[in-house]
């Protein structure tokens, strides 16, 4: 925890993702790992959590191809957004860089990072190749 006693988990997550690293938090009380990070453990309610690196491999649970987007994504339509379950069971949303014809349930994916964006908006998912 920082000296001002504000638990800035989102700032830490964004600092790391700006360096192309996916992180979560680990509860120092019960060991539960959470992605995205949150300031209080969902399992034991302890506020004693620390940022830890997270393996970016997972599988695609569900997705949508968005044809009408908000102004910040208007020039990118259609684009695909999906929810991915990581190997530790935690889940994240992100842009999916996989052609629509190849999208299937439980498709193995791996985290990727958009160099054009800052912070949490950098997260993308690409198809995992074997060995990755």
């Amino acid at each position: 925890m920082t000296e001002d006693r504000i638990n800035r988990v989102i700032e830490k997550y964004e600092e790391e993702i700006n360096n192309n690293k996916l992180t979560g938090v680990k509860c120092q009380s019960c060991g539960h790992v959470m992605v995205p990070p949150r300031p209080v453990c969902r399992q034991c309610r302890s506020p004693d959590v620390e940022i830890v690196p997270i393996d970016g491999r997972g599988k695609l649970l569900t997705w949508t191809i968005i044809h009408v987007g908000p102004p910040s994504y208007e020039n990118q339509v259609p684009y695909t957004v999906g929810i991915v379950e990581l190997e530790n069971g935690e889940r994240l949303t992100g842009i999916v860089d996989i052609p629509a014809t190849e999208l299937t349930y439980d498709l193995p994916v791996v985290a990727d990072f958009d160099a054009e964006r800052e912070g949490a908006a950098r997260l993308r998912w690409k198809k995992a190749v074997s060995g990755q």
């Binding site: 989102i10 995205p36 569900t62 997705w63 949508t64 968005i66 009408v68 987007g69 908000p70 102004p71 910040s72 994504y73 208007e74 990118q76 684009y79 957004v81 999906g82 929810i83 994240l92 949303t93 992100g94 842009i95 912070g119 949490a120 908006a121 997260l123």
Partner: peptide
Amino acid sequence: THVTEALSMCADDVFEVSLGVTFPGAFAM
């Protein structure tokens, strides 16, 4: 598009909206 953006502010701004999620998108998933 601006109404879509305004409504999307009801989702998680950091972990959903910044990644292009809209409400039709969330219900579509």
